[in-house]
Amino acid sequence: MNICIGFLFSLTGITSLTEIGQYRAAVYALEKFQKDNSKSNITFTFEARDIRSDPIESYRQALDMACSGIKVFVGCYTSACRKAILPVLEQYDCLLIYPALYEGQEIHPNVFYVGEIPNQQITSLLKFTIEQFGKKVYLIGNDYVYPRYTNQQIREMLYELDGKVIGEKYVPLGHKEFSTYLEEIKHSSSNAILSTLVGESILPFYKMYYELGFNPEEMPIISPITTELE
């Protein structure tokens, strides 16, 4: 018996930097599982689709694979892409294994959420930041579901910790010019920058941060989402 799993990752597009790594990890995990269970009567294969960091494309590809009989999916890194395929999961009774941290505020019977939500991750990060650097935090992120919903919760967490949001800015996905934003942050009273930038925005932001002479010991960038891969 063979079971085919649908991989929905952005192999191109603005979040592909992160998602290619997730795709490779998923392939590795499946291959290792097959090797460790080589005597089983059940085999697993996969079909990969490039969702191109686009919720509409995510829906199209998920629908096409669901129509072909695939019942289990892995991927959809951004919350926008995850939410886009929920109607497909419901209509065809499929399961999505969602491999990323996310903003919470959603429980769906057709989704298995693997990653952390803010109160499992960001609370300890904010406590550390306030203890080590100060209570004033500047929020910057891309303009989509995860950063906005996460920052709503960060505001509440900071309030409980007697902290303060000094500024809050959102840029389009793929945005790469940060000199104006960082100049504003540099001349603010912020003690730390909390970044929920993703994909192609991450590297230009960090690069400009150093070019403008920020001191990481005085005003560091903290992030719940940037990884070693980026």
Rank of each mutant, 00 (worst) to 15 (best):
S201D: 08
F73V: 01
I14W: 10
P109T: 09
G163H: 03
E103I: 07
S38W: 14
G75I: 05
Y102H: 12
N191A: 07
F44A: 06
I193F: 02
P172K: 12
A25K: 09
T123D: 13
E103Y: 13
F128K: 00
T18S: 02
I70Y: 04
N2C: 07
P55A: 02
S223H: 11
D50G: 02
G163W: 09
P216I: 06
G13W: 09
Y159G: 04
P147Y: 11
N2M: 10
E103Q: 12
I20F: 00
G134N: 07
S223D: 06
R155Y: 11
R82G: 15
R148Q: 14
N119Y: 12
P109A: 03
K164S: 11
A100N: 12
R24E: 10
F7Q: 03
N191M: 06
V137W: 11
L96S: 00
C81G: 08
G69N: 08
Q120S: 09
S16P: 12
E31L: 12
Y209M: 00
I70N: 02
G167C: 03
P220M: 01
S179L: 07
D64A: 11
L194C: 00
N215M: 01
G199S: 03
Q105H: 15
S38A: 15
K32D: 11
N142S: 12
A48Y: 02
Q120I: 05
E103K: 07
I70V: 06
K169Y: 14
Y210T: 09
M157L: 02
L203R: 12
V137C: 08
D93P: 04
K186Y: 14
